[in-house]
Every structure is written in structure tokens, then in C-alpha cells.
Amino acid sequence: MNWIMAAIGGVLLGGLYALYATGLSVSFGVMRLINLAHGDLAVTAAFLSSTLVLTAGGSPFWTILVLIPVGFGVGVLLQKVVFDRLVGVDPALQIVATFGLSIVIQNALLKVYTADRRALDIGSLKTKSFSIGEVSVGAFPLLRFVVAVLVLVSLSLFLGRTSTGRAFRATSDDPEAARLMGINSRAIYVIASGIAVSTVFLAGIFSGAQTNFASSDGPGLLIFAFEAVIIGGLGSLWGTLAGGIALGLAQTLGAEQFTDWPAQLFGHVLFLIVLAVRPNGLFGRAET
């Protein structure tokens, strides 16, 4: 029975990882950009949410409505000030600049919020669960999973069915040819960064409601997001969901079997196995 519970927990956790990974996947897919401050942005969102709750009261859920547009704005701003200069340049410069951004955000959070851990209080929802026979499923992890899947479904509808979504994919294939079709690639990049930051803001708040967080957590979250993307395979949103679930399962099942080992190690090991055996990921397109 513990195994079933661990498996369910792993799948639900995978939804959160997929939500973390979505922004990384979109940024890389559209502009071949890797933002090493991705995880730090999630932690920033959790802290902002806690500040809003502390000053205005209520539950963290209302802060989502405020912070998603704020996240979009932060993404737009970062794109215009930082990322625009990094599209199409040597990856070394992308890494250095976004690594610098990560150092800045982490230490700014440390300065403002100290090194103490915080938590977002969602009241009784945190402990509520459904029982099906002997198996119980946490209500909040389930909610989180459903929201993550909804975000991925709407994003994939946006990319697959709308004119702007087609423009996204065309820009991803060949930005210069896309511009010849009248597509303003820089506007596409701005939207992509807006989506990337607002989804990672959402993930950060959901994560902060489950476990407590501190200013130095960002890099760890970045690694989970990165592993979900690579395990699932680059260039596929559904692959990212599958990768997130595989990562979540590896962590919870591994920790179930080897109780005194850290859960994230099993995620890392799965990542390395996938890298060794299927470098294009479980659902990745073969390299051309």
C-alpha cells in the first residue's frame, strides 16, 4: 500500500516539476535561451506571496491572481533589459549573464528576507485528503497537479491552434525566415519570457504552500526543472509533463525503498540514466 501511495505522490509531484520546467522549455524552444535564474524567480514569487499575505491578509491563493500578471511583467522586463541581448549569442555569455542574475536575486532575497525559511499557510487544505479504500490522496497535491495539467493544456492549445502560436513555432524553427513572414521575433521573445516567468511564479507559489522555502532554494529548483525537460525530451510540452512525472516517481519511489537516502538523488540518477541510454529524452525528437 505504501508503494501505491508513493507512486501517486510521485505522479502528483511530477505535475509541479512540469510546471517548473514549462518556462525553461518555452524559453529554450523559442529562443535557445537557458535562464539559470529560473529557480530563483520561483523562490522570489513565494516570498512575494508571503509578503502580500502578511500585509493584506487572506490566503496565498488570491496572491496568484496578482503575481501571475506581475510575473508576466517581470518576464517582459527581463527580456527587454537582459535576454534580448543573449538571443543567438555564444552560450557562454548566456550562462554568465543569467548566472549573474541568479547571484543577484539570491543575495537580494537574502538581504530582504534573511536566511530563515518561510512557508505559505493554506490552512486546512494542506492536510485535507481523499480516501479511496486504504489509499489516501492529498487534496492540495491533487489540485496542484490539475492546475499544472491545465496550464500545459492551454499552452499547447495556444501553440497549436492560434496564429500567434504558429508564429512561436515558426520563430523557433527559423527566426530570420519568420521575420520575412512579417513576424516580429522580438515581440514573440517578449511573450515567451512573459509565459516563462509567470508559469514559474505559479509553480513557486504552489511549491511554497506545500514545503517551506528559503532564499537559497532557487538552484535546486532549477535543477529539477532542467531534469524534467531533459528526461522528457527537448521540444515537447507533453514530454516535459512526462519528464516531470518520471522525475517525481523516481524521487518518491526511491525514497520509499531507501529511506535514509535523499530523494533528489534518485531523480539525479534517473536523469543520468536517461542521458546515458536515451540522450534525446523519453519523448524527444531525434536530433537533426
Binding site: A97, I103, A108, K111
Partner: peptide, 14 residues
Amino acid sequence: YLIVTGLLAMVVAL
């Protein structure tokens, strides 16, 4: 110190 050096790394890279 780290905030300033992080910013400096960004400015140099950009």
C-alpha cells in the same frame, strides 16, 4: 558584495 559582483558579471556579459 555578491549582488554587486553578480551585476558586474551581467553587465560585462551583456
